[in-house]
Design a protein around this nucleic acid. Structure first.
Lengths: 339, 339
DNA sequence: AACGAAGATTACAACGTTGAAGAGCATCTC
DNA sequence: GAGATGCTCTTCAACGTTGTAATCTTCGTT
């Protein structure tokens, strides 16, 4: 049915292996031969069968990106960056959604689909540090993203959670804000992005000599807008006063802003808000949302690089590496300095 | 290295083909045999090699979804729905971004990656109706999404652009709004979502006996928030008056709302706004954005169904079908009826 | 007890590609 | 001018699976 190397070889009058050599840019090839083969390829519209190549060579040229959920803008933009980085290296990306569910995250790692994939970019929400050993037995090259697992058996590419949140908090305190809410804590979490960011928040307070007030720690159930809105409702209902919000994600910050505005709170006059993630949307909200750019593009690029090295050299050939991307505070209206 | 059917067959004391039969649920199998093979599979942690299967059977279990851009919430949510629908059928999804660029859209169709894929869900922005014939020669089963190509050589699953925009326009007119802007037109476009939606807008005007005013047609360059904001700035600068906006996407509506609010226009008091797409975000903006739910989940489900049928029966075995999903107007604050 | 049909399993080849190894030929070295 | 070297191309086998068709088993029927 479809055109194979055989057909190309026949038309070009060479062996099938020479066709293969042309396609793979083998170094010893007469330009003349190369041209003839290429002409035959073009004439027949030949395209290599990637299943056959995958079977023979053990490489498919596909990596999978496991993320919680594409509806979350952070992950959609991460996926976008990963696909661009992969594309630049000739890799295709299969995206798998885990919903941040621990069971599902684990199943995706051992499901039949992994045999189709050269490597995995693994961004988990459900797994915990204690689960790191579960990754030991995975033979597929893997690079970890996100903040749930540090010191795993393989590379980890992530952001400076504590440092950046500390910087954001210091930034609001430096404006003269005195009661700054940590918005998006997860009860009892130490590691994980919420835990790390909370730690950064506390460091900033300590450094500024501002006492830590439990009442200003607002728990948010998840990373959705609705959850941000609900948490802010609860916070307002509690009667606590505050003049700044360091939100642990842009999305929950937007949910919270919505509720504050409805309650007649002016941003930034009454309350300054800074988010986290620098999703596209923050440029166009009212007011525009100050945020932390966690270096997503850099994360994607480095993660794909690392993964490719691991694919080339063997999953365990390289000792685990850690990479922390640079962050930047992006100042917008929601934390504008008052005149 | 990896466990193969051979190893499983040895351990279970059966032929390799029996293992294959167990995996593929062949009907004539002694329960006892089935169990023994399954035990061996579990004991060895065997996972089928999908490249080999793909090579032998011609099916890879992977479909590709070609979309303009995951940063656009509409496409991210569409991708999410497609992946859920595919997952329910045991299919994996490779996402390819085209940036809505015509060249790239065409290249993705013939690139080497397509040989890895059983079928293509093809959502184009750059191609035009005139390009439909370019699809004739594509042998890969394909289902078209979006509004650029109708009457192509294969199935087309889409939304009711005209009807829904007409309904949205009528809805605003029914509230007593008299100068309703069509926001998001593309110059000279007849087909394509912008063209179709504009047609629906005009139908609604005609039906209500409201004269068509060229000044109320606002062109928006693309589908990004920034472009919506810029177009609204231009519209306001033109000095034209209006009391309603039918935006052809939620994202540009949000960009426009931002600019209107900055200009002191109250929504919905001064101007009622309704968007298009029902992206998640519209539930949490201030004010929440009325919109049209175009039936995205239904589109994804039907598209995957159609594609699977085509994969099973052959790309050309089924005459082209057209499917239009149901739409709903979602009333939120931005078009609330004034007290 | 012999036969046929249906149930259960297997042998074999093939899918399209690439790695390993080697053959043919021209050029260089002394 | 014999041997070594380097370039160019080819032969062959193998990757792990499944479709085809054949074989072996079992069981019911006569």
């Amino acid at each position: 049915m479809a055109v194979t190397m055989h057909d190309v070889a026949n038309l070009a009058g060479v062996s099938i292996k020479t066709v293969s050599n042309v396609i793979n840019n083998y170094q010893y090839l007469k330009p003349e031969t190369k041209r003839r083969v290429q002409d035959a390829i073009d004439a027949l519209g030949y395209r290599p069968n990637l299943s056959a190549r995958g079977l023979r060579s053990g490489r498919t040229g596909v990596i999978s990106l496991i993320i919680p959920d594409l509806r979350n803008a952070y992950f959609a933009e991460l996926a976008d960056e990963v696909m661009r980085a992969a594309d630049a290296k000739g890799l295709s990306v299969i995206i798998e959604q885990s919903s941040g569910d621990r069971e599902r995250e684990l199943n995706l790692l051992t499901g039949p689909r992994t045999s189709m994939v050269d490597g995995i970019l693994y961004s988990v929400l459900g797994l915990e540090e204690d689960d790191a050993h579960l990754l030991d037995r995975i033979e597929t090259p893997m690079v970890l993203l996100g903040e749930r697992i540090f010191h795993g058996p393989t590379d980890h590419v992530t952001m400076r959670n504590s440092e950046s949140t500390k910087a954001a908090t210091s930034y609001l305190l430096g404006q003269g804000r005195t009661r700054v809410v940590a918005f998006g804590a997860h009860r009892g979490e130490v590691i994980g992005s919420a835990g790390l960011r909370l730690a950064g928040y506390r460091e900033a307070l300590a450094e500024a000599g501002v006492p830590y007030d439990e009442a200003l720690i607002s728990e948010v159930g998840g990373w959705y807008r609705l959850e941000g809105a609900q948490a802010m409702q609860k916070l307002l209902a509690s009667g606590v006063t505050f003049d700044g919000v360091v939100a642990f994600s842009d999305v929950i910050a937007l949910g919270a802003m919505r509720v504050m505005q409805e309650a007649g709170i002016r941003i930034p006059e009454d309350v300054a808000v800074i988010g986290f993630d620098d999703i596209d949307e923050t440029r166009y909200t009212l007011p525009t949302l100050s945020t932390i750019d966690p270096g997503r593009a850099e994360i994607a690029r480095v993660a794909v690089d690392y993964l490719q090295e691991r694919i080339a050299q063997g999953a365990r050939a390289i000792p685990p590496r850690e990479y922390f991307a640079d962050f930047h505070i992006v100042e917008r209206e929601s934390s504008a300095v008052l005149a």
